[in-house]
Every structure is written in C-alpha cells, then in structure tokens.
Amino acid sequence: MAAAAAAAAAEEEIAVKEPLDLIRLSLDERIYVKLRSDRELRGKLHAYDQHLNMILGDVEEIVTTVEIDDETYEEIVRTTKRTIPFLFVRGDGVILVSPPLRTA
C-alpha cells in the first residue's frame, strides 16, 4: 500500500502535464532564460513559482544593445556579459525558459 503510494508519488514527480512541470524537472540544473529588454540568463535553477519568479545560481547575464552610429547610421550590436553568484529574477520579465540541453 505504502509502496504503491510512493510509486504514485514518484510517477507524479516525473509526469509532464503542463509547462511548469518541465521547469520543475529542471530544478538544480542549468537553464537558459530569455528576458525582456534583450537580456539572457544562464544559471542553475534553485527556486521558482507559478509567476516564473526564480532564483538562479552562478548566473551569466548577457545584455544585447543596439546603437546607431551617428555618421554612418550603421547598427552596432554590442553584448555585455556579467556574472552574478546568486540572483532573484522577477517573473514578469521572463519570455522563455529552456531546460538544459541533453545532447552531451
């Protein structure tokens, strides 16, 4: 009886029925997050909720900016990288979350 319940619970742990289940499976894994205002994050997922508020560890943030050259009117695309050890991300800025790549 108890074993059946435990098996059911284990099955529930791995069942993917809705998008957030996929994020649950990424707990303690490195994920990719695309944010508004041309920001991207890669980091280890430590916590999240249904708003996609998150806590990430060992984060690399990449910000992409586009400047227009005053003279040539050419678009200059710049990316700035920084690393943040431990970061809370507010969910309203999240565009997409991608689980770790399983190719390796």
């Binding site: 430590h46 916590a47 806590i55 943040i84 050890p85 431990f86 809370f88 507010r90």
Partner: peptide
C-alpha cells in the same frame, strides 16, 4: 518595478529552497 535582486549566497540553505519549491 524590480528586475533582479542580487542576493547574498549565505542566505538560505539550497536544499531547503529546493524542497520549498517542490
């Protein structure tokens, strides 16, 4: 209006955080 909060690493135990999230 918050985008990020940069946190101290010694705040809360990671395992407790994982359990609370599940």
């Amino acid at each position: 209006v918050v985008r990020y909060v940069l946190l101290p690493q010694d705040g809360v135990d990671i395992d407790i955080l994982h359990d609370a999230t599940r």
